[in-house]
Design a protein around this nucleic acid. Sequence first.
DNA 1: GACCAGGTATTGC
DNA 2: GCAATACATGGT
Length: 278
Amino acid sequence: MQLSIPDLDLRHIYESGQCFRWEPLGQDTYRIPAFGRTLTVRQTDGVFDFSCGAGEFDALWRSYFDLDTDYAAIKARVAPRDAYLQAAVAYGWGMRILRQDLWEVIVSFIVSQNNNIPRIRGLVERLCALCGRPLESGQYAFPTPEQLAACTEEQLATLRAGWRAAYLADAAQKVLGPLPGPETLATLPLADARAALMTIHGVGPKVADCTLLYGLGRWDAFPLDVWMKRAMARLFPEETGKMPESAPAIFGPYAGIAQQYIFHYCRCHPEEIREKTA
DNA sequence: GACCAGGTATTGC
DNA sequence: GCAATACATGGT
């Protein structure tokens, strides 16, 4: 089906480090495995061709692309007087926060720690091929917690994930066991939801915040990685040591979305940050 | 061959 | 509490 969508650019999302399984298929086209399905999307001048019918689109992908949220209003709220924020929003004008599967986000960002994005992509794909269900498209579904938990240490070693392999095993155990379900994590106070996720070995503050933001749509979560720390030190030096708790006071209820614009811009323009903080 | 990559757990003060 | 350190793997 075809749809005209404002404030959406697939490349901005693909490059923004929130998802790791999108596969570029030439100009402005991506193949996206998620929810055990494979969607192909082509973008031409704000018009999007989705390789699915209206039923599947409304059931799965409308929420995935966060299409019921007015990003124009959010951008206006996020970029007040500060020139850097204005530039970040203008540069990543088509950014959106995907509503991804919670379990997939937990695993992906455990894998992401102290790793670069190309290697994260490779690792996640190897994991899917190792124990995920084969799809008709020839790709693999993201493995369930049960499938991951069933893997032996030797099998996980083939991923070449290093010390993170043990973290993945623990994440599966915790999700199958004591961890509250998605509905609970979505409604818990931020600090409590964060603490619950951090009971997983290998999930610290940053991975917990990524999980809350990308896996539960909690825009009050504000992931602080090395790049965001640099950007915040440059933009709000007086907030040093108070982040991420003070983020909502600065950016309002869309702190996590602001983070996404800033992170993307920051990664693509490293010189603007280094000049000021080196 | 250092050095870095969307960090975290552990240790020592 | 908070800084220093090790941690595996692969790409510049």
